[in-house]
């Protein structure tokens, strides 16, 4: 179907880009989820009014386009703070906060979905706030939040394509470089899409598996 001049070296070059995409996504999703759980719990504990400053801070990351966040953060770190940070570091930092902002909302929704009466039953058995959180609230909230969280993780992976603006050559950027050289856009984008699919698929399946297992409980 395609008569290509793509060489093995080029495929390795693409695979390296895919590796960067996986790495940026994995780091951002892990840090963003930890922060998101923390921010989500803080929001629930403080209530809407006291948590307003935090909510406002997180809303910035949810409402400003990621591309602009990346460019501004990079400029701010370099020119204002005079820090010589790698593009990779800035990319992970911005994407982590971006993930955390969405994750905090998901966590809040999950915690709110745990009935107050269930929590009261746990506390009445002598469980502390922390024990209630750890053994009752978070496990139940996870079940509620998981589908949205999987969606978020997959979204972050696709959005990570934007980190090229801070000079990180991830999968899509690698593909564009090859397109410029080989002039085979359709074929290369097909391969690039296949890479994205291969990365996403296990996560989506894993989410489906957990959901099914939990609904059998």
């Amino acid at each position: 179907m395609f008569d290509t001049t793509l060489s093995l070296t080029d495929v390795i070059f693409l695979a390296k880009g895919a590796g960067i995409t996986i790495l940026v996504t994995a780091i951002s999703v892990v840090i963003g989820t930890v922060l998101g759980i923390l921010f989500g719990i803080i929001r629930v504990q403080l209530g809407a009014v006291l948590a307003a400053p935090l909510t406002f801070f997180l809303d910035i990351f949810r409402s400003v386009p990621l591309l602009i966040q990346l460019v501004l953060a990079n400029a701010f770190m370099g020119m204002v703070l005079q820090l010589q940070l790698s593009g990779f570091f800035v990319a992970c930092m911005v994407l982590s906060l971006y993930t955390a902002a969405y994750c905090a909302e998901i966590v809040r929704g999950g915690i709110d979905a745990v009935p107050k009466t269930t929590r009261r039953a746990a506390r009445s058995l002598g469980m502390s706030w922390g024990q209630d959180m750890r053994h009752i609230v978070l496990p139940l909230a996870t079940r509620v939040a998981l589908p949205s969280w999987i969606g978020l993780a997959l979204g972050v992976m696709k959005d990570s394509a934007l980190v090229y603006v801070v000079q990180v050559t991830e999968l899509l950027k690698s593909t564009q470089i090859l397109i410029t050289r080989l002039q085979e856009p359709l074929f290369l984008l097909l391969i690039c899409g296949a890479f994205y699919f291969i990365i996403s698929f296990p996560l989506a399946r894993f989410g489906g598996y957990l959901e099914k297992r939990w609904s059998n409980d």
């Binding site: 009935p115 009466t117 269930t118 009261r120 039953a121 746990a122 009752i136 496990p139 139940l140 079940r143 939990w214 409980d217």
Partner: peptide, 10 residues
């Protein structure tokens, strides 16, 4: 023990 039995469903 409450009116609603409040099992831990997980």
């Amino acid at each position: 023990v409450f009116q609603q039995w409040n099992a831990f469903p997980h």
